[in-house]
């Protein structure tokens, strides 16, 4: 059986600019939370954008269920089952919560199931039902992130990629976001997460990936990554992992 997602010697960058990713690789374990860490400019966001089709793959390949994603547009990759939530959460600020959820199902062929899927999500996240007629832009950061994550569930994806979901959120709310991710993973959704707060991310992940200068330096179980003295020194601020 082919790997769910297999990224091999991937080279990518923005426009005609220099390659940000240069030989990155990644393997994912189905139904696990993967945390990609590394310093600023390491290519973490670039990796997610290349996988979801926002950036062109220059060299190497991204295979999903054994099939190459090279040259596909973001909407085609979404239809295959990979959802991406970018750093700024990709919400429509002047559309209501319900309308935002409906846009989440824009790519679905089966329109009849859409309203039911939205009802299910509102059931799971009562805050979204409470706020359904409110404009998304007027909600708090945590509520917006909840909406962005919940919205991915409408298309029943295999993989959800999140770029810094903790950005701008209070620590208590951040933990709530990680808890949502864990529940999603327990339902069989593979999570790919980029996190600036490396220690926090790894603590909540099953698998850790260290990216630097556009390459994958190390990947392994999150606990091992946290315990590695060199990684601690270089990427986890030298603090001993708890």
């Amino acid at each position: 059986m082919p790997e769910l997602l297999d990224v091999s010697s991937l080279t990518a960058g923005y426009g005609d600019g220099p390659a940000i990713l240069d030989g990155a690789h990644l393997t994912v374990q189905p139904g696990k939370v993967h945390c990609i860490i590394g310093p600023n400019g390491a290519g973490k966001s670039t990796l997610l954008k290349a996988i979801c089709g926002m950036l062109k793959i220059r060299k190497g390949d991204v295979k999903f269920k054994g099939e190459s994603l090279k040259g596909l547009r973001p909407d085609q990759i979404l239809r295959k089952g990979i959802c991406f939530v970018p750093q700024e959460r990709a919400l429509f600020p002047k559309m209501t919560v319900r309308e935002n959820l409906r846009m989440g199902g824009y790519s679905l062929a089966d329109k009849s199931g859409l309203e039911r899927a939205i009802d299910e999500i509102e059931e799971r996240f009562p805050i979204l039902r409470e706020r359904r007629d409110q404009h998304a832009g007027t909600m708090s950061g945590g509520q917006q992130q909840t909406l962005a994550m919940a919205r991915t569930l409408i298309v029943k994806p295999d993989i959800v990629m999140l770029d810094e979901p903790s950005l701008g959120l209070a620590p208590k709310i951040v933990q709530e976001m990680f808890d949502i991710m864990k529940v999603m993973a327990s339902e069989g959704i593979t999570i790919l997460l980029v996190e600036q707060n490396a220690l926090m991310g790894l603590k909540n992940a099953d698998w850790g990936v260290v990216l630097d200068l556009g390459r994958t330096l190390f990947e392994g179980p999150a606990a091992e990554v946290m315990a590695d003295p060199r990684i601690q020194e270089l990427y986890l601020g030298g603090k001993k992992a708890a």
Partner: peptide, 19 residues
Amino acid sequence: NAIRATTQNREAAELLGVN
């Protein structure tokens, strides 16, 4: 709705499958 979504956040609309 796709038009409004594109007006408000073009990249997000594209990511959600809007042409």
